[in-house]
Simulated scan of single mutants.
Amino acid sequence: MTHPPWTRSDAVGEALHVLRMSGTFYCRSELTVPWGFTLPAMPGCLWFHVVTSGRCLLEVGDEVLELGVGDLVLVPRGEGHVLRSDPAASTPSIMAIPHDMDDRYAVLRHGGGGPEATMVCGAVRFDHPAARTLVGLLPELVHVPVSPLTGRLQDTLRLIALEVEELRPGGEAVITRLADVLVIQAIRSWLETAPRTGWLGALADPRIGRALALVHRDPARDWSVAALAAEVAMSRSAFAARFTELVGEPAMAYVTRWRMHVATDRLGAGETVARIAAELGYRSEAAFSRAFTRVVGESPSAARRARRARDVLAG
C-alpha cells in the first residue's frame, strides 16, 4: 500500500489523511421565521451545521449558541440538539416534519413565512479507528465563526452557499462532497490551536508519533518494544519510558488495543473471526478471541452483534 510522503514523519498528517467518512444524513434547509426542530441523538456520528443565510439558535444541553451567516458548528459526539429561529419557536422532531428525501439527502422547507434562513446540515461517521480516536478528542461543541484566520474554510463555505442559492443538476452531490471537506477543514482548524497533550501530543512528537503511525499503518506486524524503538532510532528503555509518558499506556498495550479497534471494524463489516485473527498476526482464532475479550470486554460475536445493532439505529 502506498502512503503519502508526509506520513513518514507527520503522524498528525496521517491522522488527518484517514478522516474518511461515510455520510449518514445530509439536509438542505429552507426556513422561515418562526421555525425550529429537534435533531435526534446519533451515537457514533458527528453532526455539523452551516448557516448560509439568516440566523438561528443552536441548543445542546445547557449551551446556547447564536449562529449567523458563514458560521459552522460541529457536534462531535452526535448528541441530540435543537435548532430554532428564536427562543419561543416550537421544536418538533425533524422526523415529524415533511421533507423531500432522496436516499440520504433531504430538502427541508419549514416555518411560519417570516424572514428566511438557509442551512446545510449533516451527520457523518468516520470509518478509520485513527479518525474516530481523533474525533473523540474534540470538545462537546466546536464553533468555527467567521474569521480572517479561517480563510480556506470560508472559501468552502462560499461554494456551499452558492450551490444552495443556485441549485443546479448535480448540486446535491456537490454540496455533500463540499460538506465533507468542510468537516475536515474544521477539525484541522481545531487541531491548530488544540493543546498538544495525551494522544494528540504523542502524535505530534517526532519519534513517538512515527511509532504510532507505524502501528496504525501495519497493526499485523510482529511488533515488540525493541522493534518499535529501532524504527525510531531510540534505545529500548528510553522509547518505552517516553511512549508510556506521552500515550498514557505501555507500547505493547497500545498495539493490542489498536488491533482490537481494527478488529471491531472488520467484525462489523462481516469478516470472519478466523480471517481477522490471521490478518492481525494471531496464530489461532482462540488466541485472538481471548485477547479481544480481555481488551474489549465482550466476545467477538457479541461485539459484531452490538456493532450491527448500532449501524441499524444510525442508518
Rank of each mutant, 00 (worst) to 15 (best):
D10F: 02
L19G: 00
R20W: 15
G23I: 10
G23L: 09
F25G: 04
R28K: 15
L39G: 03
M42A: 14
P43C: 03
C45R: 02
C45E: 04
C45H: 05
W47P: 00
F48A: 01
V50C: 10
G54H: 01
G54M: 02
G54D: 02
E59V: 06
V60R: 12
G61Q: 12
L65V: 08
V69S: 15
G70K: 01
D71E: 11
P76F: 03
G78S: 08
A88R: 15
S90T: 14
P98Q: 02
P98F: 00
D102A: 11
L108F: 05
E116K: 14
A123D: 02
V124R: 00
F126S: 00
H128M: 14
P129W: 04
A131W: 01
A131G: 09
R132K: 13
R132F: 08
R132N: 11
G136K: 06
G136T: 06
V142T: 12
V146Y: 05
T150M: 15
T156E: 07
E166K: 15
L167Q: 05
R168G: 12
E172A: 08
A173P: 05
V174C: 12
I175E: 00
T176M: 06
A179R: 05
A179K: 07
A186L: 10
A186Y: 02
I187T: 06
I187H: 05
W190F: 02
L191W: 12
T193L: 12
T197Q: 09
W199E: 08
A204K: 04
D205Q: 11
R207W: 02
G209D: 02
A213M: 06
V225S: 11
A226P: 07
A227K: 14
L228G: 00
S235W: 13
A241L: 14
F243G: 04
A251W: 01
Y254V: 05
V255L: 10
R257K: 14
R259N: 00
A263C: 05
L267Y: 03
G268H: 11
E271W: 12
E271R: 12
T272Y: 13
V273A: 07
L280Q: 05
L280P: 03
S284D: 03
F288R: 00
S289K: 05
R290I: 08
A291Q: 04
F292I: 06
T293I: 03
S299V: 03
S299T: 07
S299R: 01
P300N: 06
L313P: 11
G315W: 13
